[in-house]
Design a binder for these strands. Structure first.
Lengths: 154, 154
DNA sequence: CTTGATGCAAAAGTTTTGCAATTTC
DNA sequence: GAAATTGCAAAACTTTTGCATCAAG
């Protein structure tokens, strides 16, 4: 959860980013940013359009959201996430959040975040040993959560 | 590379699979399977259509490829892969291949496969500690390869 | 000769784009 | 007022689907 102060910091960050790029600020874009930043969990472009609309104040056209999303990514307010397939590209807030990966229950769809430093370190080692300078990664685990597997419980 | 004998084993495997499911064998499907199995590296549905056509013998309609691909996945002749975004779902051969993940150079697009048992083991640990039975994963690293980074070489 | 496989065309779903109207600076 | 942003409609792209025809067992 990003509190009201965090939201302000994020919007200020966005304004500075926009200024730096020689672009203009805009109400609509900030509405989209607000909806994205306060969205719980992952969201698609379409869901974001709905979120903005549900907040009542502004209304956004899907095309605009599709134009704003890459900008928010570039400003590092949000990240693209995978959370496997389905309906289109997903995003989640990145601003003032720690890095994490996901494990998804194939049965109920539950998504749990995890962060394991040991894995992160090994990733760097792998990259280094292959002659790469690591800049990012996608890591998603699939499984069946305990709630979905009342069977086979030892 | 899958040699001619491997190809035969794969096709026989497919035939058995098809029989087991109560479906029928077909020339076209086997052409698609052959093209997929002998394809070097990753491929999309569209590329597979081209590959089949280039082999000259058969010709396949895209719709057919889209219908065949899930079957080949189910038969475990191929796997879906990510190899980040771009034009549609990608696949690669799975038959008689070890599991591996990918690291991709963001600059030149080079894809290198890797397999690190330590990471695989940690993944299981993570899943277990979160109450999941692990069934699969996507793991893709991004970076800049040595060829693309003549600068910053220490 | 019954059932599955295929081609084709049309549809569906997501994302992009050209353009006129609007907002921002 | 010049330039960026937005909405709208149309296009682009990938994938799916209904249906008539073809091929397999």
């Amino acid at each position: 959860m990003l509190g009201p102060e965090g939201l302000n910091r994020a919007l200020e960050h966005l304004r500075a980013f926009v200024r730096r790029k020689g672009l203009k600020s805009s109400l609509v874009r900030e509405s989209v940013a607000r909806a994205a930043l306060e969205h719980v969990g992952h969201f698609t472009a379409e869901e974001l359009v709905r979120s903005v609309r549900e907040r009542g104040v502004e209304d956004v056209h899907p095309a605009t959201v599709y134009r704003v999303l890459p900008l928010l990514v570039e400003a590092e307010l949000i990240h693209q996430t995978l959370v496997s397939g389905g309906e289109g590209q997903r995003y989640e807030r990145a601003f003032e959040r720690e890095h994490h990966d996901h494990i998804i229950c194939s049965s109920c769809g539950k998504v749990v975040e995890f962060h394991f430093e040991a894995i992160e370190l090994l990733q760097s080692d792998v990259a280094k040993s292959l002659g790469f300078r690591l800049t990012g990664h996608i890591h998603e685990l699939f499984g069946v959560c305990s709630a979905c597997e009342p069977l086979a419980r030892t």
